[in-house]
C-alpha cells in the first residue's frame, strides 16, 4: 500500500505540491487519484500475475471467472467428498465433476521457457501465483499431482461448458489489489 501511494505521489509531484496549499483541492485530488487507480486497476502491477491456459479462447472454466475466484475452494471440498467417499465420478449431465483437482491441473498447467510444466515450487504455477500473494497455504499438492500426466493436451478443457466469456483469453494477466480484495472468501469452519 505504501509503495502504491509513493508511486502516485512521485508521478504527480507538482500537482501534489500545489494542492497542498489548498487543502480542499488536495483532498479532491487524492480522491481522484484513488478513483483513477480503481478504474485503471489492471495497470497497478501490484496484484499477483497469473497465466491463463493455452487454447482456452472461447471456453470458460466451470463457472465464470469472478465466481471461480471466490468459490473454487467450496467446489473442491464438495466434490472430493462425493468422489472419494461416495464413489460419484460424474455429474448428471455426464461431464466430470466441477471440483476435480485433476481437471484443474490439466487445464491450468503453466509451461516455462523450456516448454516444461512448472511444479508447485515455482511461483508461476497457476495455483501458487495467487495463493502466494494472498498468503494462503493449502496442502492439496502434498498428495495430489501438481502437473498433468503426459502432455496434458488430451485433457485440456474437454469437460468444460461451451460458454464464451470474452474476458477469458490466454496469456499473462496481472490481477489487481481490488480483484484480490474481492476474492477473500467468507470464513467457514463447518468441515474437516
Amino acid at each position: 500500500m505504501w509503495l502504491h501511494l509513493n508511486f502516485n505521489f512521485g508521478f504527480n509531484s507538482s500537482f501534489v505540491r500545489k494542492s497542498l496549499q489548498k487543502l480542499p483541492l488536495t483532498v479532491a485530488g487524492l480522491a481522484l487519484i484513488a478513483s483513477l487507480n480503481t478504474v485503471n486497476a489492471s495497470q497497478d502491477g501490484l496484484g499477483p500475475k497469473i497465466t491463463l491456459p493455452e487454447n482456452s479462447e472461447g471456453k470458460s472454466c466451470v463457472l465464470p471467472s469472478e465466481q471461480m475466484r471466490r468459490e473454487h475452494p467450496d467446489l473442491l471440498k464438495h466434490d472430493r467428498i462425493q468422489t472419494l467417499r461416495e464413489g460419484v465420478r460424474a455429474k448428471a449431465d455426464d461431464k466430470a465433476l466441477d471440483g476435480s483437482l485433476k481437471q484443474c491441473v490439466n487445464c491450468h498447467a503453466v509451461k516455462d521457457e523450456s516448454n516444461k510444466f512448472v511444479r508447485i515450487d515455482n511461483d508461476q504455477h497457476f495455483c501458487v501465483s495467487c495463493h502466494k500473494y494472498a498468503a494462503v497455504s493449502i496442502d492439496c499438492f502434498q498428495c495430489h499431482r501438481d502437473i498433468p500426466e503426459g502432455s496434458g493436451a488430451f485433457h485440456a478443457l474437454t469437460n468444460h461448458k461451451d460458454v464464451n466469456y470474452s474476458n477469458v483469453v490466454p496469456g499473462n494477466y496481472s490481477l489487481t489489489v481490488k480483484d484480490m480484495a474481492n476474492i477473500a472468501p467468507e470464513v467457514n469452519s463447518d468441515d474437516n
Binding site: 462425493q82 460419484v88 465420478r89 460424474a90
Partner: peptide, 11 residues
C-alpha cells in the same frame, strides 16, 4: 464411458 449412469450414482 462417462455416459454410464452409475458414475453419477456412486458406489
Amino acid at each position: 464411458s462417462l455416459s454410464d449412469f452409475s458414475l453419477k450414482e456412486g458406489a
